[in-house]
Simulated assay, not measured.
Amino acid sequence: MNTPKRLEAALIKLYHAFHDDTLNPEDCTACAVGNMLDNYDSWKHLSDAHGSMQLSYVGTVHQRLGRRFNGYSPLEILEVEKIFLEACGFKTPLCHYNEKPKNPRDKELLFSGLCAVVALLCKLDNVPNVMDYSKLFEYEEHRAKYQLATILR
């Protein structure tokens, strides 16, 4: 299967964030989208509410101009973030009184979020769900069970 470049890049970044314990759903530079977009937070201006699918004025302008962020449109970015947060147990859009998990950094919770994100990313690129590569995210004692290079060959 020929994996689109944006999907491959996103998977590699998410893999490293997960295994390096730098994936954090409560930090816009370290959540799924934050990691996909090189740990910058400028994407948060695409919406007025974290986890919302409603584009802000800035997001609407970027969407209408056809702008892409590491290959993803503003609406695609918002969709990825929403699905990640919800799969991690958050009620979206985020606010102080909405439901959230007791331990948002729990590895099992983050793995669930990543599974949902990967499935969405594959759907966006019209490719079969690459979670057949589930070995990428397998871990033992908070360490990667397999090395990325050996799995992708």
Rank of each mutant, 00 (worst) to 15 (best):
L120K: 10
N129K: 00
P101C: 11
I83T: 09
C28M: 10
I77A: 01
L55F: 12
K82D: 06
P101G: 09
T29Q: 07
A87V: 00
E99R: 08
V118M: 07
C115Q: 12
E26S: 05
V58C: 12
Y97P: 08
D27N: 15
N98A: 05
N70E: 11
D20S: 06
H62E: 10
A32L: 02
L120C: 08
L78V: 07
L121Y: 03
D38P: 04
L85W: 09
R67G: 10
L65E: 06
N103F: 14
H96F: 13
S47P: 14
G59K: 00
A32I: 02
P104V: 08
L23H: 01
P104W: 05
L78D: 00
H50S: 06
R68N: 10
K100R: 14
C122H: 00
D27E: 12
D38R: 03
D41P: 00
P101W: 01
R64V: 06
L124F: 11
D21R: 07
L78E: 02
G59P: 02
G89E: 07
D20W: 09
P128Q: 05
K123T: 07
G34K: 00
Q54S: 12
L65N: 06
T60P: 04
N126C: 09
R64N: 10
Y57F: 13
C115S: 11
Y40V: 00
K82V: 02
S47N: 13
Q54T: 14
R64A: 13
G66W: 08
H62I: 06
C122M: 01
L85D: 09
V130S: 11
R64K: 10
A119E: 15
K82H: 14
V117Y: 03
A116D: 09
T29N: 10
N129V: 01
D41E: 08
A119W: 15
L114R: 08
V127M: 01
N24V: 00
V130W: 12
K82I: 02
N129A: 05
Y40D: 08
N126Q: 13
